[in-house]
Amino acid sequence: MKSTKIYDNGHQWFMFGRDPEKPESIIDTNQYMIVTDERALLMDPGGIEVFAPMLGAILHHANVEHITDLFASHQDPDIISSLGLWDQALPHAKLHAPWIWESFLRHFGMENIQYVGIPDEGSEINLGTVNLKFIPAHYLHASGNYHVYDPKARILMSGDVGAALESDQSPIFVDDFEEHIPKMKMFHQRWMPSNRAKNDWIKRVRELEIDYLAPQHGRIFKGENVTKFLDWFEALEVGTAIAS
């Protein structure tokens, strides 16, 4: 599992992914971690298959007990099916996740970790030196769905929004936006169900100051590619499994 430090100024952001030992049949995922002096938040920690490589990669940057909080943008297996294992590793941690998924997520096995349901309108979390926002992204693609915004680092962890299906050896950042489009088009058209939800999200996100838009699959959008992505996504018709 490769780890990349994407921000380091008072607190750090790490991106984990591109695991060369990952079974080929499972989708490549990006996991993220924010580390402050006292605490660490693990975002979309991933599936059972990536648990060991993830824990191994984390231990290069933080102690086990430093991880006090987990976040799951939604309930998908590639996001959080490792929950039962984290439950054994971090019995005192809190899981921040959509309130509507609590009784579903508990099926992954959760006896120790405390579930903190994020309300529909979103919420905040303070990690000591940094205040993060859980921004609603409902129906993008799950019916209860959030992204994490760090106003200080100007990073938006955007879950499946901005995801691309491509080789797990691909670079961390999008370099040529036009070239990147074919890798994300089908994903967004098929996995995102609602144009209304999409446009509402774009309107709210345009008001944020974003340097990095960091999705759970594929590459991170940096600088002007963030705006290019929002423009492209706005023009895109989604929910295409149903003929209009």
Partner: peptide, 29 residues
């Protein structure tokens, strides 16, 4: 089985990442 499963994975991490800065913090777990 669940504890055993987790333990096996911890063990794997322990042997594979001997040189990680924070590997000792895994012992208590």
């Amino acid at each position: 089985q669940r504890s055993c499963n987790a333990y096996q994975r911890f063990n794997l991490v322990y042997t594979k990442h001997k040189n990680a800065n924070h590997i000792k913090s895994l012992s208590d777990t």
